[in-house]
Design a protein around this nucleic acid. Sequence first.
DNA 1: TTAACATTGATAAAATTTTAACAGCCATTG
DNA 2: CAATGGCTGTTAAAATTTTATCAATGTTAA
Lengths: 221, 221
Amino acid sequence: MQKKEAPLHNNLAWPTVQRLSEYLIILEQFAEGGREVISSSELAEVYSNTPSQVRQDIFRLPNTGRVGQGYRIKELAEAIRETLGLDSVTKIVIVGCGRMGMTLAQHIPFGEHGMKLCGIFDNDPTIIGLEIEGTKVEDVSILEKKVVESAVSMAVLCVPASVAQELADRLVSSGIKGILNLTRQRLKVPPGIYVQYEQIICSFMQLAYKCKQSPRPAPNL
Amino acid sequence: MQKKEAPLHNNLAWPTVQRLSEYLIILEQFAEGGREVISSSELAEVYSNTPSQVRQDIFRLPNTGRVGQGYRIKELAEAIRETLGLDSVTKIVIVGCGRMGMTLAQHIPFGEHGMKLCGIFDNDPTIIGLEIEGTKVEDVSILEKKVVESAVSMAVLCVPASVAQELADRLVSSGIKGILNLTRQRLKVPPGIYVQYEQIICSFMQLAYKCKQSPRPAPNL
DNA sequence: TTAACATTGATAAAATTTTAACAGCCATTG
DNA sequence: CAATGGCTGTTAAAATTTTATCAATGTTAA
């Protein structure tokens, strides 16, 4: 069976993109553990979906698995990175260094995923100047200057909701391409600019819905 | 036009549940601002989808909008809360009070969304005893006892990946129903227990994919 | 060498989700 | 009071996404 040529303009379905990013995390962990090969059914087991869906997701990738053998973990991970656009460095800034911004700055292994943290900005004089994970917090007044200078392409927005739109506008006018929005403010941006909303409270609500489907089980200690 | 009776066993499509939780945040903001009524097209505009989809999502809710008038914001919000299971109090614990756990404890307005934070647990003696937003951090060794006692139904997991599965097991055996997992460890849980994964790094990757679709625009200052 | 086995790549069918269309209702206006 | 306009509830069609199926292929064992 011959693998069809990968289409040049690879347009993946959004649910597929979401799963691929999660597969990548799983693959990286397997790789750390020294595993070299994984089958679609094993990945499906860990991810809690079906082998068929895993194969369908991987099907669009440039990579080739080995029929009868499974996938080389490193090759597959690389193929996912490439497809997601993580093979070349993505420059990022964090806007708002309150509790959440600071936590993200310290918590997220940007470097491990093809991203480079190029700046952290805040307007609080007691925070400006602090060094977090090797990056100094700068005054938000020089945000535009820095974003343009470094040609930053993505921003994380962790400011109070009341100023979120204003800062989004400033980021957009500085040429930013995507915003990861952790505020509860919906943002209005021009076409071609992408906003990804990340509201943990919504995840709670969604989990609450799942939990409602059946009664709480008895403890089993 | 007569509204059909709401089906008793209201089973919503998952994408619908996701959107409803986000609509709720938007509605709450409009309500704060003093607005009383909203139309499907207005909500669609803010959310960036279509009026048709908004109406389709709302269609399954027990609530009734007013034909020709739009939706009463408070009624609609209440209907969403009810449907999502946020009308009765959901008891929650936070497991792991490192940087992320602490940030969540301080950052998330549990009370405003029908949830009650019933405990924060860690194993670090320098952290145990701290009081965060009115809740004392307790020793994780009494986790099971507390979860059973208070009949807690959801947990947030913010521990190192290496101990995530172990703690998930302990939570499950204590009768927990749902886990919001912020670690990068995939969890294995029995059927009927729900895990919601929340990996910010994945949101970054997904945003990177969106951004890859078109080139970075020129700044426009 | 040949047969048995495991597992992918690919396609087709099934299921789900989104979009479109419109009748009916309420408020408002002339 | 009738006509107009705006917007929902509902259904049907279209599009997308998931699942099922199976031929093809490399590996291993007899």
